[in-house]
């Protein structure tokens, strides 16, 4: 939010958002699993113009070998934005933001993966943001969770994520880049909906305690819907073959 003063109006007279959505409406979401041949599991997830590719390898042998844990598999996670995924070119060198988000995303997935089944091994998760338009980390978590399922790695539940925000005083679901840039707050959330467990929660912005509660509730409802889409796409992969 600079002093440039070009902030667009984010909510119009009829309560619609800058891209025409209602406050509690998700962007059009597309998901596909098994999009890469070599990876053990993969997924491509699109939330509007935010496109994220996730690939999973493992459980596999750890390299170097000493970087293992005796009681569980180690998860290695990298979140990255491709250099041309943003308006200004993103330097391919890892930014501090990417370092933090790699950790936050790993910690969003750790509670879901049954790592204790595979001691002394490694599970690698690579998340590549192909096109960034807000909500890349939550799309990344959603895609990574699908890729883990596609790799056949046992999980307590799927993890789905979405960001809510406050724009022009209104709490809205699944904010896009413009709402993120000019809005008052951005709150990414990820959860295992079947178990009611929140695994990622960040707030970037200022909210009253009541606004926070409203936002969290809205996020959890959105996550429910995304979760149903995840399950559907995982089933679809096999339905397609059946029809052949």
């Amino acid at each position: 939010m600079g002093a440039v003063g070009e902030k667009p109006r984010l909510i119009d007279e009829s309560g619609r958002r800058i891209d025409g959505r209602r406050p509690d409406e998700l962007r059009p979401i597309e998901m596909e699993v098994g999009v890469l041949k070599n990876a053990d599991g993969s997924a491509l997830v699109k939330f509007g113009d935010t496109w994220v590719l996730a690939a999973v390898y493992g459980p596999r042998e750890a390299v170097p070998k000493h970087m293992t844990l005796p009681e569980r598999a180690v998860i290695r996670c990298r979140y990255r934005m491709l250099s041309f995924s943003t308006h200004e070119r993103k330097s391919p060198a890892p930014s501090r933001r990417e370092v933090e988000l790699s950790k936050v995303i790993r910690e969003a997935l750790e509670p879901a993966v049954l790592t204790e089944l595979y001691p002394r091994t490694t599970i690698d998760i690579f998340i590549e943001v192909l096109n960034a338009h807000g909500g890349t980390r939550t799309a990344g978590v959603t895609a990574a969770s699908l890729a883990l399922a596609d790799a056949g790695i046992p999980m307590r539940d799927l993890v789905a994520g979405v960001a809510v925000g406050k724009v022009d005083g209104v709490i809205v679901l699944d904010i896009n880049e413009i709402e993120d840039m000019y809005g008052e707050a951005d709150m990414p959330v990820a959860a295992m909906p079947g178990l009611g467990r929140i695994t990622l929660l960040q707030l970037n912005g200022v909210l009253s305690p009541n606004e926070f509660r409203t936002g969290l509730k809205m996020a959890m409802e959105g996550i429910r819907r995304i979760y149903e889409m995840q399950k559907k796409v995982l089933r679809q992969k096999y339905a397609v073959i059946e029809e052949e």
Partner: peptide, 22 residues
């Protein structure tokens, strides 16, 4: 006012735990 939040760690928090933590 709440001016930022960050969940960290390898475990989860339930809705009720988040509410209580706030």
């Amino acid at each position: 006012l709440i001016a930022g939040m960050q969940k960290a760690g390898m475990d989860y928090l339930s809705d009720a735990e988040v509410e209580r933590a706030v």
